[in-house]
Every structure is written in structure tokens, then in C-alpha cells.
Design a protein around this nucleic acid. Structure first.
Lengths: 214, 214
DNA sequence: TGACCGAAGTTAGCATCTCTCACATGATAT
DNA sequence: ATATCATGTGAGAGATGCTAACTTCGGTCA
């Protein structure tokens, strides 16, 4: 709901977003927090430090966010948007209904986790925020929807088909687990090296082929 | 190294473990923290509150733990012991080399995540601790070893076989993702209901059968 | 135009938390 | 019996989360 086009549409739109004292602090705070989370881990962040980096007093953030958790929720919300966009772009880079499109969705997921492990972990660490934030739930569901969509196209079935849902869930949990293990235990936990693309293609094939068979 | 049998073996062993002021505070603190993490989430815990629950001053914990993170590492270490024990028990409840034994390892994993979601999440949230704590790494590797062992027995191959390692990693990531998704999105994210045991058996079969074939 | 209003930011301040330092205590060893 | 060292206590410094009261500025409307 916020950060839309300026409602005062006619006035001097030089310096387009500089409307109040600071400019748009909200986005800058989220960016600062994202950086902090990425650097020091999901816990190693403080509202005070984020405010310091944005060049405002330590009380300023509370004009835009009710709570410390709400700031994190803002970061998560923004991250989920980017994640979904990346997954959709991955799917769009391959023919509709192809196995590659399915694997590319998973690849985008893994790439995101590897590029921003702190934020990725944060997205799935927010238990306390989920109940209070229905928009996060819907955004999560929309991310899952990307997987469902790709699987449905590949199997040539409607997205609400239970079998499609089940296979999509299997793929999602597979990719999710792979991503988490990957960023958790960078030190090799297996003696067998894993190449992401082969791995994901193989997984996708196994899950979807067994669906087509049975 | 600590908490062994009392070295003063001959003396009055009434009240067996009451040796110092408080008794064994270390274990009691870990238990208190575990409870707090389970109740308020991995972040909603404070050393002060744990000390309060243990009935000691807020400075006492620092005689047993260097840091706040070190307390969490203690909880994680203890949790990993329990997790490995549960996985081994699951495997031991079925014939050696059976598919059920493999699935039971995964079931134990999922059960643990469901029974203690906070602690489970904490185990895999500790990035900053892992570098400084080699014992956590080895404990994690031993947990993975349980999976490897079950898979190796099922495929009748040595545990260090790369294919065994790869299949074990696949199963592990699958179960890990399933567990995480399950505790994250209790609200159903799919229209297809998932029954754990059937699910895990199917997964195990798919992963191991394709290994046997190729 | 100019007085009002509310959004966005500031300083001051309380409660809490982490962690340290000096001190007290008591079990154990000599 | 006394020294010692691990274990606990209390006080306190520094940082943080968050609130309250005040200031400043942009936009609205008589």
C-alpha cells in the first residue's frame, strides 16, 4: 500500500521522490537492514545501527515501523518479491511445460539462497511475524504458485489438481532442503560433489516422471 | 568433558550430584534456554531470563559460558545428540537394510522438527557459531552418517561410495525441506494432504530404486 | 496569502540486556 | 587448618528497544 506514485500528481515533480525531510527513509532503512542481516546474520542487526547507517536518529525508524520485528518483516516482504520474480524469470527462460522450466525455478531458488544466505535464512526464520502478517503468507503462497504453475504446465494438468500440488510440494521441499543444507554446511558434507543443474534436472525428472507413470 | 561421574568416588554420595553451590547449573541453564527458545522462538531468549529461571544471578551464566552464542551452541549441541539418537533408534526399529529403516530415519527427523520446532530451527540457524565450534560440525556429520549408514545397508554398498553419499544427501535434503516447510507453513500450502510415513517411504523408494537401476 | 494540520524527524529518558570486575563462599587438597 | 580455585553475588558501564514531548516542514483550505 505505501510507496505508490505520488498522490500530488501535478506539483513540481523535480526530484521525484524527495517529498519530506529525508527522502524516502523507509526503503533506505530496509536496504540498510538487508545489508546488516547479510553481513552479521539474522540476529546481528539492530534498529539503532540501521538508523545510524541511514543517517537519522535512533528513534526515526519507529515513525515507519511499529516494531523491530516489523522492520524484519519489511525486509522479508521485499525479499519475497525478488525471489518470486527470480523464479518467474527462470521459468520464462525455457519453453512452457518443459522440464527445464521446472528445474530453472529450482535453480533460481538455490541461486537466491546462495547469493543472499542471510536474507534467505531470515525469510524462513520469521515464525513470530507470520501470524500477524497475512501479506507474507500470501506472498509465500504466490512463490509456491510459481512452482505449481510450472509443474502443471509440464504435466498438462490444471494447477489445482492434487497430484500437481503434491509433486510441486515434493520439488519445493527438495529444493528448499538443498538450499538450506548448501548454505549451512558449506564444508562438504558428502564425498559426492553436487552440480546444481544436473541435480535439479534429475530431481525434477524423477518427481514428474513417476507422476506421469502412476 | 564435564558432568562426569563424581571424581571423589568414596565420599558421602548422598545427593549424588550436589557438589558445588547450586548443583550442576550448566545443564539447568541449557534446559531453561531450550524451554525459552521453544516458547518464544530462537530470538526471544535472554541470558538474564534463563538465569532467573535457574534461580541464580544474571552474572552466573558467564561462569559456564563465555558468550550468549555459546549458550545457544550448548543447546544446539545437546539437541543434536538427541536428534542423532532418535534417528538411530528409528533405524534400529526396522530390519537392517530395509527401505523402512531408511524411511524411519527420515521420520525421526520430521518428528523431532515437529516436537521441538524452536530448537530445530535454532540448530540450523547458527551460522556464526559453526566456524568457532568444530564439535557442532562433527556432530552434524555424525547425524548425516546415520542416513548414509542406512542407505549403504539398503543398497549393499560401502558407506563411502559416492553414489551412496549422493543418494543420502538427496534424502537428507528432502526430509530437511519437508520438515522446514512443515513447521513454517502449518497453514496448508498445498491442497494435497501429506501423510508423513507414506510420503517418506515413497521418497526413499524413488531415490534408492533409481540408484539401483542406473 | 496565511493559518492550520499532520507527517517525519529530533532529543531525552526509562527499562532491559550483555558482559565485566571486584568480592564472597565453600569444597578439596595438602 | 589453611591455601586454592571454581562457582556464585552485586554493582555498574555501555548498548539497545521503544515511548513521550517537542520541533520542523510540506500541503490544504478558508
Amino acid at each position: 500500500m505505501p510507496d505508490e506514485a505520488p498522490s500530488t500528481a501535478h506539483a513540481h515533480r523535480v526530484t521525484p521522490k524527495v517529498s519530506y525531510h529525508h527522502g524516502d527513509l523507509r526503503a533506505q532503512l530496509i536496504a540498510a537492514v538487508r545489508e546488516l542481516v547479510e553481513t552479521y546474520g539474522p540476529d546481528g542487526f539492530s534498529v539503532a545501527e540501521a538508523a545510524r547507517r541511514a543517517g537519522v536518529s535512533s528513534a526515526a525508524p519507529y515513525k515507519h515501523f511499529k516494531d523491530r520485528p516489523e522492520i524484519l518483516r519489511g525486509v522479508v516482504s521485499e525479499a519475497m518479491d525478488r525471489l518470486r520474480a527470480a523464479m518467474e524469470a527462470g521459468a520464462a527462460a525455457h519453453p512452457v511445460g518443459s522440464l527445464e522450466a521446472v528445474a530453472a525455478v529450482g535453480q533460481a531458488y538455490v541461486d537466491f539462497a546462495r547469493a543472499e544466505p542471510g536474507v534467505f535464512r531470515l525469510v524462513f526464520s520469521l515464525t513470530e511475524g507470520h501470524e500477524n502478517a497475512p501479506d507474507l503468507l500470501t506472498k509465500g503462497a504466490r512463490c509456491f504458485g510459481v512452482v505449481v504453475h510450472a509443474v502443471a504446465a509440464c504435466l498438462d494438468l490444471p494447477p489445482d489438481n492434487p497430484d500437481v500440488q503434491r509433486r510441486a510440494y515434493m520439488l519445493w521441499s527438495f529444493v528448499h532442503g538443498h538450499s538450506f543444507l548448501h548454505i549451512d554446511m558449506k564444508t562438504k558434507v558428502t564425498t559426492a560433489e553436487i552440480d546444481d543443474w544436473d541435480y535439479l534436472l534429475g530431481i525434477s525428472h524423477a518427481v514428474l516422471a513417476s507422476a506421469a507413470r502412476s
